[in-house]
Nucleic acid binder design. Structure first.
Lengths: 257, 257
DNA sequence: TAGTGGTCTAGACCACCGC
DNA sequence: CGGTGGTCTAGACCACTAG
């Protein structure tokens, strides 16, 4: 690794140090999961103060390249294996086979998954959801809030909203909605599903999301806002999902005409 | 705005300051585009050293909440109007009308857009693309690399790859591929388009991407890797797009069966 | 020129980790 | 315990922006 700062360059010292570390990582000199030199080492190597070194390291952490472990050291982040959200995961044949959507994806990867239910019950609909669901602002909907995990790793937080008129008295309002998930229950309630739309955005996490998803700093989240429509074009469910960006690839298929 | 640090709490001072500013923003006390108190102000208000204040501010910049302008101040970031990538933007009817895909989206918003072509010509295919395109590693493809802008704001960098056997001698290899974009040219060359797949991921930008897209720190990018197939299921083009995350909503429509 | 953010130093103390 | 990262102070100088 380069260990000199060019005093002529007008690039700040901390950025030069960050460059040197970034290069060492991309050249393979320091591999994924390996430790970068300690702050004390870097202070000696580059002959700078601690603040300058910390500035360099915090830049690389914000970029998502490094991860710090208090008392142990700073390490190159390793990318865990990715999961796919296949665009066919809402097919009726899967529901008929008793599989919920996330089961389709997880099974395709042989991944053991868990679901933690935070809350299931009627509540006031958030304004943004009311608009998509086509219900009056302030009306009551069934709220299902839960977290998905792969082994010990939380991967996504999801909240579903169903008009209370559809959900009332069904298994949707139970902790476990039964085989095929809530979409199977919605169809049983007489609302045959016609299509889904998904709106995908990405941003940095809110502090509470970072906590719930165990996000290291420098990891963005993807947000998928999915609306389910029946065959009459009436919205019957909205699902708001926030997922760790580097654990997912969202795959979609589009017709040419 | 709160201006006191709880000395009993074990939450670090810089995080308490960040919390106070975050609260002031979310309560509307400081609106989008408005200036937050200067470093000197915050030093006085909270009775801390400059380093502590800077720590708080850089946290909020990494979160994407604030944006600093050297010599002027630190401001609450304003979210510009979002653009939609409609899932129908590859319809043949649009191509027949002479519209390229990005034109469909931009027109829908009444946005003036520009394209800057970086490079058009034959080159060696990157390994990752070769796999998707189904061509041998190391073979030659047409590479079209360009940047899209809305007014002065760069929004996305896109690179298309077409097997040289398809592209050779056509207008695809020109700077301006003509009406309907390269998909129209691909169809003219006898490859009727059957479907597209898009794989969406999000991450923090590489330094060169941050530069090319004028990204403020704390802004992630979305990456869309699109593959176009002809009606025989043969891949005819791959497009690798990196876009400023907070300027886009990707919209998709999924059938229920 | 005064006020702003950007960089850097030197030194201190703390909290966490592993031996 | 020694080594690691985390927080904080006090003060300095620089670069940019505006009046």
């Amino acid at each position: 690794m380069r260990t000199a700062i060019d005093p002529i360059s007008d690039r700040p010292a901390y950025k030069q140090i960050a460059d040197a570390i970034r290069d060492a990582v991309s050249s393979g000199e320091i591999g994924p999961g390996e430790k970068v030199p300690s702050e004390a080492d870097l202070i000696r190597l580059f002959n700078v103060a601690q603040g300058t070194v910390r500035n360099a390291l915090s830049l690389l952490r914000a970029e998502g390249l490094l991860r710090a472990e208090h008392g142990k050291g700073v390490f190159v982040r390793e990318r865990p294996p990715m999961q796919r959200k296949a665009s066919n995961r809402f097919r009726r044949s899967h529901r008929d086979a008793g599989k919920a959507a996330y089961t389709v994806d997880a099974e395709a990867l042989g991944i053991k998954h868990d679901v933690e239910v935070f809350k299931v019950g009627p509540d006031v609909v958030p304004d943004e959801i009311a608009e998509r669901l086509g219900v009056p602002v302030g009306s009551t909907v069934l709220v299902r809030s839960r977290r998905y995990l792969h082994g010990p790793t939380p991967t996504e937080i999801a909240t579903s909203y169903v008009p209370w008129s559809i959900a009332e008295g069904t298994a949707m309002a139970e902790e476990n909605p039964g085989p095929g998930g809530i979409y199977a229950r919605i169809e049983e309630a007489g609302h045959r599903l016609g299509k889904f739309t998904e709106d995908v955005t990405a941003r940095m996490p809110m502090p509470d999301e970072a906590k719930a998803l165990h996000l290291p700093s420098g990891t963005p989240v993807m947000r998928v806002l999915r609306t389910a429509y029946d065959t009459n074009g009436v919205a019957v469910e909205v699902c708001d999902t926030v997922m760790t960006a580097d654990l997912f690839v969202l795959s979609y298929e589009l017709p040419a005409d």
